[in-house]
Nucleic acid binder design. Structure first.
Lengths: 197, 197
DNA sequence: GTCTATATGGTGATAGAC
DNA sequence: GTCTATCACCATATAGAC
């Protein structure tokens, strides 16, 4: 596979970068091949040189790249954090809120179902491994340390991601007060301590 | 406005019922006017007799009906439940899981943005009033009873809806274990008691 | 209330020249 | 690597007959 900077793969690299920005902002179905081409300053059919199998191939290539970067960065940040669950979750939430790109609800409900079956299965697995598994692992470890109660780590990861996702997903009329980081911390406290007095 | 059973409004009523089923299952953008017409056994242009302003008008009419029924039923069930927050949340979650229809993440991110601005604003407000407000009110009341800590009821309602929504929205490879009602109860306990030991 | 016929525009995709 | 030209298909929507 040609690398960036080798002149051979430069065009490909640029295509992936621009496509990533658009796909992550508006989703697979929300972006047309023409829009991507326009943003690149080329004509729409020229994209088929880089993704001969079509739009779904381009999307999967973009997703793979983005998820791999995400997974690596998340791993680094968790490794550098304190060993208790609250500190780890704060690191995760802050990274997810700043790096932005993944809109899980849209991906799971709109993008992935719109892909051809084989591509959808691959995409699903990639998301699971890069996004859910690392978080589920945090909960599992905390359980092994007897830090938290015996709840399914998978369910806990799903709940955590849903909460984070909801910070971006919904906008209620009278907006949440304060910056997202603050709400993120409040959600973590809520998850760990509960809301009862 | 013609009522069902008066023969005058029967066709309209049937249109709204069929359109509701499809819109709630697959969303505004996920259903075409042709599909709705096919399901009704009529031709696509005939729908424009019932919704002269087009698809968005049909969607809004459907949404209004569905939300009003939802709001009324939720109100009744909450009124009939015990007065403590856990019991009330259980009632809410069970109703949301069984009545199904609203996929909040999809509505907020896909359907509403796809509507004309004026229709979108109306839809947004209707959802807020019928879905979020009643739940936020439960939290506010619990706070007044000093049952829970002083967290923004709006944020709590958003979190609760996000958690419930996520039960339908995502399917992780190794599925959550057990029936949705059980997971629903677990999520409520998690929200109220926290996960720390 | 519903029909046929049609306008208009967007979409992903292919063929073949340069 | 990118172009032009073009295809087939789907969408919402309108006009006017019955």
């Amino acid at each position: 596979m040609p690398q960036p900077g080798t002149r051979v793969g430069m065009a490909r690299e640029r295509v992936l970068q621009v496509a990533e920005r658009l796909f992550m902002e508006r989703g697979y179905t929300g972006v047309s091949m023409r829009e991507i081409a326009d943003a690149l300053g080329i004509k729409q059919p020229a994209l088929y040189y880089h993704a001969p199998e079509g739009k779904h191939q381009l999307y999967l290539a973009v997703l793979e790249r983005a998820l791999e970067r995400h997974r690596a960065e998340l791993h680094t940040r968790i490794a550098a954090s304190d060993a208790d669950l609250r500190a780890q979750l704060r690191v995760v939430v802050r990274w997810l809120l700043h790096s932005v790109p993944f809109n899980m609800a849209r991906m799971a409900q709109i993008d992935i179902p719109a892909l051809p079956a084989a591509t959808a299965a691959t995409a699903s697995m990639l998301v699971w491994e890069a996004l859910y598994l690392p978080i589920a692992q945090l909960f599992a470890n905390a359980q092994a340390r007897h830090e938290i109660r015996a709840l399914d780590p998978t369910m806990l990861a799903g709940a955590a991601v849903a909460l984070i996702d909801s910070l971006r997903a919904y906008d209620v009329p009278e907006e949440y007060t304060g910056p997202p980081e603050l709400i993120g911390d409040q959600l973590i406290d809520m998850l760990l301590d509960g809301v009862l007095i």
